[in-house]
Write a protein that binds this DNA or RNA. Structure first.
Lengths: 129, 129, 129, 129
DNA sequence: GTGGTCTAGACCACT
DNA sequence: GTGGTCTAGACCACG
């Protein structure tokens, strides 16, 4: 488990933790059953407060990504998809609209966007195999 | 100018305003020189606090999307791209990574994502012409 | 909004708050759109810490019962049932098994239990009308 | 004695043990005088910490359900009901209120609940005969 | 004024 | 040692 927080990142620390854990799960570096660092350990190594880590873990639990056990370390949850796929698709669409709008207003062209998107989707497909 | 705020949207009101203005600019419904409603008018019609509208307008000004004039209504700015394209591309990549990670963890496949993305990019290209 | 915490209750304070809010929603004393006391107000009136109240509100939000708005008070959410009814039924069965087992081991007979249960269900049906 | 612990169950391990012992007593699978596995045996077979098993046994003893003997295995106690029946009834009512409130908020109707409850009480009555 | 985030330090229950 | 709960006090962003 290697996590880091970026002081210059404007997003709150707990969100950075959440996103990094999600990322590692997506990349397959963390698999169901794997243990996460204890709240205190991670807080120490990141030089942040225990409660900040705990807050991040709690959110991850509520999203079904990890399991918290009293007296034991948190573990990656078995993957289950509580959301209906159509809801997930609708959510994706809304978020993409916003991202693309910002990109266009920053001067990128549709083909710029298309190129960047395709590159990322290629990478995802590689990981899927 | 038709704006609306969605109570059930988890995002703060000021962001909803910003995003809707951006969206209308992107769609060409608002063009450089067009007037926005006055702070007081918009606050009244949306039933929200004046400070909230003012805050949203200030952020839009900071992003170079609108111009504020003393005693006159705000207007859409002539389009300029203060960010370097490289920065815009880098920003886009980071945001896409997050959006795609979430989509994958919610059970969507790479091809699901690809399909949705392509549909949106098609629409953008139509508008661009 | 009248809430109270019971020092002698072994359950944590935040759970007592959650259960009382749920109860008031169920009884119809709180309806969608109604405002809850602010975190600080409730903390003051209950003589407990702000964060304890906030924790309770957060859980209620995650369960979809209330909505939190930045800078505004929390409100009761419009009722929506994210769980499939079959899941809700399965959960109810498990919880009932435990409750009934304890009651039996404490010396109550099946007819004792039946009597108590029926009385409560009668009351619920009255409220439903 | 067949016990198992469920990793995905959110309840602490010691409670799962307690509930399963209670359940087996209620179903008549364990009768007064029957021996329970030794603390060490159970800890080994469930792959959990000895202290956890010991804690569970201690709680069961406190509730009067089992008897602990120095150097010998624990045994199921002769059934006695230390609580007054009134207290047991009052406790049952409180717990049912909470369970029913949750069920209602999850979208179940009074008749759904009634149906599920009745089915369970029928089963209990069968066992009682 | 209101919620959002973070820090600090404490005590308890569970493993 | 580990998570669960609670308190206390602070600063920031939003309305």
């Amino acid at each position: 488990m290697w996590l880091s927080i970026n002081e210059r990142d404007s997003r709150p620390i707990y969100l950075q933790i959440i996103n990094q854990v999600k990322d590692q799960v997506r990349r397959g570096l963390l698999k169901p059953g794997d243990e996460l660092p204890s709240v205190r350990e991670l807080a120490d190594s990141l030089q942040i407060n225990m409660h900040t880590v705990r807050g991040a873990y709690l959110k991850l639990k509520d999203q079904g990504l990890i399991e918290l056990h009293l007296g034991r370390r948190a573990t990656i949850a078995g993957s289950r998809f509580p959301l209906k796929l159509e809801d997930a698709e609708a959510g994706l669409q809304l978020r993409l609209e916003e991202v693309f709008t910002d990109a266009l207003l920053e001067g990128l062209s549709a083909s710029d966007i298309s190129r960047i998107v395709d590159r990322q989707i290629e990478q995802i497909k590689k990981t899927e195999r």
